[in-house]
Simulated assay, not measured.
Amino acid sequence: MKEKKNILLITYDNWGYNQYIADALERKSFTIKHINFHSFRYKYPSFRHKALNFFTKNLGISNLKHIHYNEIILKEIQDLESIDTSIYIKADFLSPETIQAINKKSRRSVFIISDSINRYPKTKKILSLFDKVFSFEKKDCKRYNLDFKTNFIYKTVDNTLLSYKYKVFNISSYDKRFPILEKIAKALYQMRINSKIIVFKPKKNSGPHLEFISAPLSISEINAFMEESEIMLDVSRAGQQGLSFRVFESMGLKKKLITTNTDIVTYDFYNPENIFVVNDINNIQIPASFFTTPYTEIPKEIFDKYLIDNWVDELVE
């Protein structure tokens, strides 16, 4: 009987998406150990430690939480004698010493970068520690000689609904994208498009075009809203080329997409019948026909390569 390969997956999985990677690898008969260091809880010994950490963290000297992450991860791998492939997501949270200790036990190491390196510059210092580095950002792939990889489809449907509760859906945190999101939400409201646009921002009053919530929603709650909505809305960060999960969720659920990510037109699945790109945020003009015409199926050979069960193959080959 062929021996199962051991895969170590180390992620900061704050939304739960990386568990889909672990599940897909398990379905392929790998033995998986998923260390999600977002679940590690750190309690400051005193208020003085908390105050000191605020300054040292922002000065780039040290971060007590990150030190805690590294210590627990090293304890977690103590009993692992041999790892066939170690896969890292958010490795910039870890020290080079921790990464090197893990890689000493690993036949192969893979790092997946889901954000731009400009946003997380510490990433540059650890690129050389891995056998393979993938990035969602084409610009970073070219600049740092990395391998390009997109996000993945983790949920699919066979049939779509005949009617939906909402026409357009989006959920996001309150950040620098908010002014753009607000403009799109207002434009949809003025077009009398029934939208469900949720922003995680405690102590903020909701209005007719935006709903503010005080606690983040779970993936299952988000999935329920997506299933009840006909069209997805995606707002990318400034300078972002890499495609967010909203894009691949819309593909898997066979839903149209409104997005501010102009690079999406370069992808093989792009179809203007399914995807409307907002090029001018100050002059949003979405044709009425976009909301009334049906979704066009993506060719199977294109669709299948983004499915999580196929997406993971490149990580462990």
Rank of each mutant, 00 (worst) to 15 (best):
V110F: 01
P96I: 05
S109H: 02
I117N: 08
S114M: 11
L64S: 08
I89V: 12
L129R: 03
N118F: 10
S109R: 00
E71S: 12
I73H: 01
T98E: 00
N118Y: 11
T98L: 02
F136S: 05
I89W: 08
A91T: 04
I61D: 09
N63D: 15
A101E: 14
K138V: 14
T123D: 10
K122L: 15
I112E: 03
K132Q: 15
N118D: 12
S114I: 14
D131N: 13
N118E: 15
P96L: 03
Y69F: 09
L129Y: 13
V110N: 01
I126R: 02
T123R: 08
I87C: 00
I89L: 11
F93E: 07
S109V: 01
N118P: 08
I77L: 07
S116R: 13
R119N: 15
D79W: 12
I87P: 02
K138W: 14
L94R: 01
D115V: 10
S114D: 14
P121T: 06
I102K: 00
Q100E: 12
Q100N: 12
D140G: 04
L64F: 10
I83W: 00
E81I: 09
S114C: 12
V110E: 03
S116I: 13
Q100C: 10
S106P: 04
D92Y: 10
I73M: 05
I102L: 03
S82K: 11
T123H: 07
R107W: 11
E97V: 07
I72F: 10
S95C: 06
I61E: 11
D92T: 08
D79Q: 10
Y88N: 01
D79R: 09
A101G: 07
K90T: 09
S82I: 11
I102N: 00
I112G: 01
E81C: 08
N70S: 05
E76N: 11
Y69L: 06
D140I: 04
R108S: 08
K122Y: 15
S86Q: 04
N118T: 11
I61W: 14
S95Y: 09
P121G: 05
R107V: 09
I73R: 02
K105E: 05
D84N: 06
L80A: 04
I113F: 08
T98C: 05
N63M: 10
S86F: 07
S109T: 05
D92I: 12
D92P: 09
R108M: 09
L74Y: 07
I112H: 02
D84G: 00
S86N: 10
E81N: 11
K132V: 10
I87E: 00
I67A: 12
D84A: 03
L64Q: 14
L74F: 12
I73P: 01
P96C: 01
Y120G: 07
I61L: 12
